[in-house]
Design a binder for these strands. Structure first.
Lengths: 219, 219, 219, 219
DNA sequence: TATGAATGAGTTTTCATTCAT
DNA sequence: AATGAATGAAAACTCATTCAT
């Protein structure tokens, strides 16, 4: 998976020479603070129920200040969205997709655990992506589709390889990949509600158990 | 699965004696028409992007008339939501959960096909539930949670039985049930985009194949 | 001078069948009332100092009602502007430009008196055109330029004819026409301040006296 | 015509002793630079469409710096306005109003040419006065009224004298003076659009031709 | 019952001015 | 003196809901 263009957010990056390095750092940290506060609010109330007033109150800034850092409510949401998407991409990117490198079981174990952990470490971002984002607007939907599409493509290729190497049964790789993605999403959503960190391992094992060996006793 | 309380929508059902039976029928049919039109609009534009103007235009009624039949924009959405939820429930309800009645594979085949078909027959309702509804408001989220909760409980019990009867491996039934639900949701969403009706069988088979026998070759 | 396309203002003319003739009339009269009230406010405070609040207060309507009739503050202003421009055009249109029809003096007398009277009858519209409109935005400036351009063209042609017929000295018709227009505008503006209606005749005579016979005694 | 009170603009002139003379000069030159840049912007975009951001960008200074030199957006505009008004006043002031000094024709030739040239040399200031200023606020309108009033008074007195000396026909001096002012304004505005410098003489001659000898052939 | 004009609270965004550094 | 980030009052516009006919 290749990294998408980074989204810098602020309208036009001010040209900062040497002397304003400090200022630029301050600015960036403040931006971060607003993003963090906004994430919390968006994640809790959802996009539409969130007012700019909520955002600036949570960030402790004035109304105009918000627009100093972000173009609009919509823009800050997109920036937030891009972040998690990027984070998940990164967490998957690290996994070795050369199937011969290790048994399928081990490989999937690593990636599933990583993905679940990533979501688990960022419950707000997760809630944002899973609950607030879908259906917001066409642009958001396009981003989500692209994201899941990448994930699916990556998974499908991996499975295809495994299949070619005789490590996997002959299955409908397309549907199976989507199925796995759906299962993971659902488990993530579940852990969001339950907020039990300890279940991460249990969830990982259950997912692998099911998908690798199936429900039936023997064949 | 038990049927939930029916939601009548309109403010207070006027007591209709014999002479107004015809009128009541007219009223009901008109209500239906508005609901149908609204479903189409909601499903296409999403809840927030949909204006009352869109609804009344699609239904061909006047602004005030809308409020004669529905309390509010929110109320009609809830009514629509309840409908699909009820329809899916019904499609699942019919399945015999006594595990000994048939092999697990057959049972799951029937139910998965039914569920997929149900969604497939009502793409608008599906889009509504899958895209517009989540994260809308607490009430909606509660309903969805309850719905999926029921589904999960039903599935978990079935699997538990199968397990007890030695028809199924020992798996974490809780997680596995959620995983299956997630997979199905994802496949449904997929078919929503692709709009290929013929794939229903292929999807069903792929889902069962994966979940019953797993990915690995042999054990 | 040809009449320009009428500007109907309201977003999309609602289709009114026979039964809603009364309603349409009501609507139109209400529109008029809002236009009149707005004209008063605009004329007194100028475009920018006028708030929508001022407009709706003057018209005695609610905020939303305003937007039922007009798209925006800018739109109602344009509609008002078009009105006076049209009215002046009409007042000039009636004048016979065939120079041989009457002596130049008589012709100019009629038209100048008409123009002055038109402005004088509508002091608010006049103030709007003369004070608020110029420099408002490009569209307004274009309209004003077009308007004065028509006026100038009409005048220039008339003078050209007069010249060809030997009724007028050989003068730079282009500049002279603009000069006359400027003089009239200034006199109109003057009468706006003085608010003396009786001076209309005196002003007309002074203008003609000056422009026809010049300042010098004899030649 | 007497010079009006000078408007210094900046809050309170700091008392500058000998040692700060250099600094004061710097300050003054910077002030000038900001004024010049602002004039350009105001003249192009108009008062309301001009943002402080435009001003400081054009002047190459920081936001806060602007307020070190000028009290407000309104204040700098007024200062700019006063300048042209003063400049025109000065260009007229030099003309000898003792009518017996020269024939009316010669006198008017000089002054009209001067006035036109003054405007022509400063198109931005001209656009400001003619397009942006009128109707801006009461204070501006008062200044413009005062300015034109002075011009009118000066012209009226001159004509009165000429009349008394038998150099001019008996005309309504009040209206005639306003008429001349209006004509000149219009011609100036015209040359602003056309931007043809060479026409200055032609315009001057046309104006005099018309006003001195009138349109008619002979009397 | 049906209509659609009227309502006004609520929301985003702008931008002149201030002030800490 | 110079800077530019921060401020918040003010303004336009939207749209779900009401209500007189």
């Amino acid at each position: 998976m290749s990294a998408p263009a980074r989204r810098d957010g602020a309208h036009d990056e001010p040209p900062h020479d040497g002397r304003s390095t400090r200022a630029a750092a301050m600015r960036e940290s403040r931006r971060r603070a607003v993003l963090d506060a906004s994430l919390r609010v968006f994640s809790e109330k959802g996009y539409h129920a969130t007012r700019i007033s909520d955002l600036i109150e949570a960030a402790g800034i004035a109304r105009g200040t918000f627009y100093l850092y972000f173009e609009s409510k919509n823009a800050i949401f997109h920036e937030l969205l891009d972040q998690l998407l990027e984070r998940i991409r990164a967490s998957v990117d690290g996994v070795d997709t050369r199937v011969d490198a290790a048994p399928l079981r081990e490989q999937l174990l690593v990636i599933v655990r990583r993905v679940l952990a990533t979501f688990h470490q960022h419950p707000e971002l997760t809630r944002l992506v899973l609950r607030s984002a879908p259906g917001l607007d066409d642009e958001v939907d396009r981003k989500l589709a692209a994201f899941y599409g990448q994930l699916h493509a990556w998974l499908a290729v991996s499975l295809q390889n495994a299949q070619a190497l005789g490590l996997m049964r002959v299955l409908d790789v397309d549907f199976v990949s989507w199925s796995v993605i759906g299962a993971v999403k659902q488990i993530v959503e579940l852990s969001l509600e339950r907020r039990e960190g300890a279940d991460l391992d249990r969830a990982t094992r259950a997912l692998l158990d099911l998908h690798l060996d199936g429900m039936l006793l023997a064949r």
